[in-house]
Amino acid sequence: MAVVKACKILITGANRGLGLEIVKQLSENSFPKQHIFATCRDPDGPKSEALRELVKKHPSAITIIRLDANDPSSVKESAKKVGSLLGNNGLNLLVNNAGIVANGTIQTTTVEDMKNTFNTNVIGPLLIIREYLPYLQMAAKASGTPGMSSNKAAVINISSVAGSMTRMPSIYKHFPTLPYGVSKAGFNMLTVLAAEEFKADEILCMALHPGWVKTELGGDDATLESKESVAGMLRVIANLTEMQHGGFLDYTGETVTW
């Protein structure tokens, strides 16, 4: 099985759900010299207890960093903190996983839900990518190898079929999550345009759908356990090349239509 060999990895929304499982699986199969920066809104709060327990098991492999995707100053501070710990080889892998879901239709969605969902799911990742870009560029240059890969320098945006223009209409009546779908469609466009900008730096950028997963966000009716989803996503991430740059795949490696 392919292994994610990126040395320096940052994961947002790492205190629960998919983010926590990504940190768990990476730390259990830790590649030598690999270090994970696990970010969350409230590192000392009750919702981060599982992450803190994980750090106790792997103290040399994980550092918890405060990062609230909804707070630009928090994003800036996190980048300064991580930058001071990275060294000269930069950040190899940024996983934009933090996100929120809001239900609603054209008739029921509130302005507040639209603003909050868009701030967290689109503006937050935009600011995170911008603040961490210098460290990704540093890693790309330090690698000394041509081409693109997740081990060199990459941005992986954890998206959803809810953001797919072709897939969402057929499932909308079962999942009336207009704010979430609209924000994920924006997130997908952010991915495509970031990929366009990052070509010259050879920083890989793509969107990844984890499947419908049994998490706080996915709900109890979901069909997939987080362990299986994350194992699949890590296999996909480990095998990425420039061929998938700007693409949209699911956790099995299948292409998702935009």
Rank of each mutant, 00 (worst) to 15 (best):
A6I: 07
R16D: 05
E21G: 09
S27Y: 03
I36T: 03
F37L: 05
C40N: 02
D42N: 12
P43Y: 12
P43K: 03
E49S: 13
A50V: 06
A61C: 13
I64L: 09
I65Y: 09
D71H: 08
S74A: 09
S74C: 09
S74K: 04
S74R: 03
S78W: 09
K80T: 14
K81E: 15
G87C: 07
N88R: 08
N89E: 11
L94M: 10
V101N: 13
G104M: 08
V111K: 14
M114A: 13
M114W: 12
V122R: 00
I123H: 01
P125F: 05
P125R: 00
P125A: 03
L127W: 09
I128S: 01
I129V: 15
I129F: 01
P134V: 12
Q137M: 14
M138A: 02
N151I: 00
N151W: 06
K152G: 00
A153K: 00
V155R: 01
V155I: 15
V161F: 09
S164C: 09
M168C: 08
S170Q: 14
I171N: 04
Y172F: 15
F175S: 11
P179Q: 04
Y180R: 00
Y180H: 05
Y180A: 00
G181R: 14
K184I: 07
A185R: 07
V192T: 12
L193R: 13
A194M: 13
A195D: 01
E196L: 13
E197Y: 13
F198I: 02
F198W: 05
A200Y: 06
I203N: 00
L204P: 02
C205G: 02
C205V: 15
M206K: 08
P210E: 05
G218M: 04
S226F: 06
S226A: 15
K227P: 01
A231V: 03
A231T: 08
M233T: 06
R235F: 04
I237E: 02
N239T: 13
N239R: 03
N239V: 01
L240M: 13
E242P: 05
M243W: 11
M243R: 14
H245G: 03
G246Y: 10
L249R: 07
G253F: 13
G253W: 12
T257W: 14
